[in-house]
Design a protein around this nucleic acid. Structure first.
Lengths: 287, 287
DNA sequence: AGCTCTTATGAATCATTGA
DNA sequence: GTCAATGATTCATAAGAGC
């Protein structure tokens, strides 16, 4: 068994990714610096220039992603001047023009979002997780993210009466028969495209972009063990931590030197094998 | 006290609205026919032509809405060829160009969404509720949509059944009820921009566009009693029903003759005062 | 009346088949 | 080829029946 790699690099992903061969990664999952957020750390890209700033980088993402791979973009537009800014939806249109397929939009519902009150706006409790692909036929392992079935199964399956059997038989072929038998051995159900994760409140001395459960969920859904995961705006290393935990190789890139150090600190905790510059990547085609 | 009006008209809202003076309505809340959906009833606007179809109508909406009014648009893009179509986000950009402010995007989380399984997609459990305004200073009554929150609400209130709550209300003035009301008030919190409504499953013999709780929520949030509410794609009359229930005047327009009849049927049930063509609207400036 | 239990069904999506 | 019709499939909720 090959040892797992979790490689954190410092630099602009636009440049760093040029060192990688094409079609290398199985999944890209990231939470880029939002426009005008984290100004002190990222310089704060102006909303009006966000798309122009993003496109050269996503061009590299497109190159290094495998044909059956997936790109997950966690992002939310800011409110400016009492209005939602349009740079995110403009980015969607621009990415499609660049060659990406806009496959799906997941909603991350932040259950414990920051409290607050404004005169003309409620608390913002959700973010977009945009799914892009290079091909309509991408890898997806739905059974890996199933959740325990709800109350329904407990009440309904407990009493399988004669009516259920009759209804099953009589409605066979109706196009919407309920095949009760299918559920007998199941206690897991597939999720929807609304994800419920609480925002993390750990003492990491930095602003976590997303809770580790978020990259974990997408890594489980879109990759297998020993696959390669990329986070081009890795920040404190959450994505690499998730990948490592799940037995996937990962590369994290961030422009901030301080994040790099922080990543080391965090990853050491989970006993990652970290490899610095000069690491030789092997093509990962030996599945 | 003036009698409430709930006026259902048959026709294309693009034409019907020309009969109304400008700056008449306090709220427009609607769920337009989605592109290529309900083909048999609406003709099915092709996704590529959706924006062009919508703009002349929203131009009228802009005219008849009061300066401090709000326009709520419930919509969701379809998946076509394995991809999410972009007509909704293109519509957002076009509406801004038309003069609307894109103030907010609420998420309607459909807890009981349609079952199904597909190879590359999970169940779609959410829709957009886009908020547009003419001005940054719009009317909003946040305290009208507060929800119970906190430990007390979760444990004590949940143990009370629906009928118990009704009983509470009927005991208004008993002293005990008053105390409860005080507790309730203290435990009310403002909601977020994620709304949880189950899709309605009643036997109405028609496809309800949205559950009545959805227009109710926005009517409470953005209007006061005796205000005027418009639904230019009113369908079965859900919006007018909600407005009536809450003591607001309403106008509903739908192109389908059959919906008009159905609306009559539904509204009669709730003893609405319905007024046909020729109704004289009075300016509603006497607050 | 107030429970529990039963039942119908909703703005869906994709692969396959047939015209 | 292209397009339309068809089949199959992960539930949650509220109204209604029954007791």
């Amino acid at each position: 068994m090959r040892e797992l790699i979790a490689d954190i690099r410092q630099g602009d992903c636009r440049d760093v990714l040029k060192e990688f061969e094409g079609e290398f990664f199985d999944l890209i999952v990231t939470s880029p610096p939002y426009a005008d957020r984290r100004v002190k750390t990222y310089g704060g890209i102006h909303p009006d220039k966000y798309v122009d700033w993003f496109l050269p980088r996503s061009e590299e993402f497109l190159r290094v992603l495998k044909p059956g791979g997936t790109f997950i973009l966690n992002i939310k537009e800011k409110a400016e001047n009492g209005e939602r800014h349009t740079y995110v939806i403009e980015l969607i249109l621009a990415l499609r023009k660049q060659g990406w397929l806009w496959t799906e939009e997941f909603i991350w519902h932040k259950k414990n979002c920051y409290p607050g009150k404004w005169p003309n706006r409620f608390r913002d409790a959700w973010e977009r997780c945009l799914q892009f692909n290079k091909s309509r036929h991408f890898k997806m392992f739905q059974e890996k993210v199933r959740v325990p079935m709800g109350e329904w199964a407990n009440t309904r399956l407990k009493s399988l009466g004669k009516n259920d059997v009759v209804r099953f038989n009589s409605q066979a072929g109706s196009g919407f028969g309920k095949n009760i038998a299918n559920w007998l051995d199941r206690d897991l159900a597939y999720p929807t495209n609304v994800l419920h994760f609480a925002t993390e409140c750990s003492n990491k001395n930095h602003s976590a972009a997303f809770p580790i459960a978020l990259p974990e969920w997408f890594i489980k859904l879109f990759t297998q063990e020993n696959d390669w995961v990329l986070d081009p705006f890795v920040g404190s290393g959450t994505t690499c931590e998730a990948a490592q935990k799940l037995g996937r190789n990962s590369v994290g890139i961030d422009i901030m030197e301080e994040y790099k150090d922080l990543s080391y600190k965090n990853t050491k905790k989970s006993e990652l094998l970290l490899m610095e510059k000069g690491l030789k990547y092997e093509a990962n085609n030996s599945k």
